[in-house]
Design a protein around this nucleic acid. Structure first.
Lengths: 240, 240
DNA sequence: CGTTATTTGTCCGTATGTATA
DNA sequence: ATATACATACGGACAAATAAC
């Protein structure tokens, strides 16, 4: 029996899978065997295995066992996982990336009919409208167009926008971000994109649209992140 | 107490949320109240609520309750959810779409060093290499470039490819698809894209790369789906 | 402002179902 | 047909965050 705290079980199993420890049979030990080894409940073991499955490392088959998946190569592009927030603020730390944020526009406006249709904020609501260019590895790679409900997220300044609005929301306003609904499209680049981004010969951008909600269920943000081709990857693992 | 079978609880709650039944307080009843109403275990209630959360309709907050999120508008583009398989075969049925598949190329080849690097199939493995153009609403919208391991998925024919290879895998070969790992990039369109797709003035494509695994953990497919801008949306819901 | 009540989250043990070997 | 192994479901106990007083 191995001496391991509950939190470590996932880490231990993950390392073993990556090292090929279980690869000979392409199977994990049974739940009962792992319960024995780690001296812990079935619930805890299943939780660790579920996490491994979410990483795309293993797959559970009823009546068979937990299968180890063949490993696929790592990518060298900037890895977004469709789960990053606040533009490119919280990227994987193992990817060394030079970043710089340039404020291209900063306004306070009232939502009109046209903006309502785009952002789904109610007409008449005061909002911050901010445009920021994200410079990554000496390229203008992302144009963030943010709209924040000023009633829910008050007091944004250009200085805050230059740093991280999400840090301000979480740390200073003590607001909880609950859910972000995201859409990803590919669109023909418009004038603003060409003006701010290093598109090269490309005439399209990726457009990641985000609707963010706090834990009162209120939408406090609408954001479009326009990014240049070839530099970003979105990952997803689908289980059947 | 409402007479409801276990499976219906999610459906009933979903309908109530959509209808705004709980919107006055922006809260769902407590778990205990729902246990009372539906006369069912806490486990079952929590399962239904979890499903609602995955739909992006509600969000649970410890010590507070289950919050109903403000609703965002539906989109009119073809909705892919990053979770569709086999190109565009299994789309939402509420979106009426004309489809047609044209086989552009069909070959059996052996994996060489270059193909190994791209597909991550082992060198020497026999594979099917298939190119299909997906015509949607009278536009050449998607170019599917499929590579299937012929040892794991034998017997593919142009006739099968014209219909659905995934149907063949599941129904005829009785093989289980376990996991699909997917990457989405935006790339500059190449000659083949321009030749097969109705790109118009755009010179970029979306490239959805899929690695598919069966329940033995073996990778049986590598696919690139190149699609034209403006017609597709990928959705995701991120919970914190 | 501190204390108590409320409400969801986590964890455990157990029993039964279901697909696989 | 039998044994194996993961999936689902239930009830209960306690922890942790929030709300109410």
């Amino acid at each position: 029996m191995v001496e391991t705290t509950k939190k470590d079980i996932y880490t231990v199993l993950k390392q073993r899978v990556i090292d090929g420890y279980y690869n000979i049979k392409m199977r994990l030990p049974t739940e009962d065997a792992l319960i024995e080894e780690f001296n812990i409940s079935r619930y805890a073991i299943r939780k660790a295995i579920k996490k491994l499955a979410n990483d795309g490392l293993v797959y559970s088959v009823k009546g068979k066992g937990v299968v180890v998946l063949e490993q696929t190569p790592k990518t060298k592009e900037i890895n977004l996982s469709l789960e990053e927030i606040d533009g490119l603020h919280s990227l994987n730390s193992d990817q060394a990336i030079d970043r710089k944020t340039i404020i291209a526009d900063f306004q306070q406006v009232i939502v009109d009919e046209k903006l309502h249709h785009k952002t789904s904020f109610a007409v008449g609501v005061p909002i911050y409208a901010i445009q920021r260019v994200r410079r990554i590895n000496n390229k203008n790679a992302v144009l963030d167009i943010n709209y924040f409900n000023a009633q829910i997220v008050p007091g944004i300044t250009p200085e805050i926008a230059k740093d991280s609005i999400y840090d301000y929301i979480k740390k200073d306003l003590q607001m909880k971000i609950a859910v972000v609904k995201r859409q990803l499209r590919i669109e023909h680049a418009d004038q603003i994109d060409h003006a701010h981004l290093n598109l090269g010969i490309n005439n399209c951008v990726g457009n990641m649209i985000s609707f963010a909600f706090n834990d009162d269920g209120k939408q406090f943000e609408y954001t479009e992140s326009h990014f240049i081709p070839d530099n970003f990857i979105f990952n997803q693992i689908i289980k059947f």
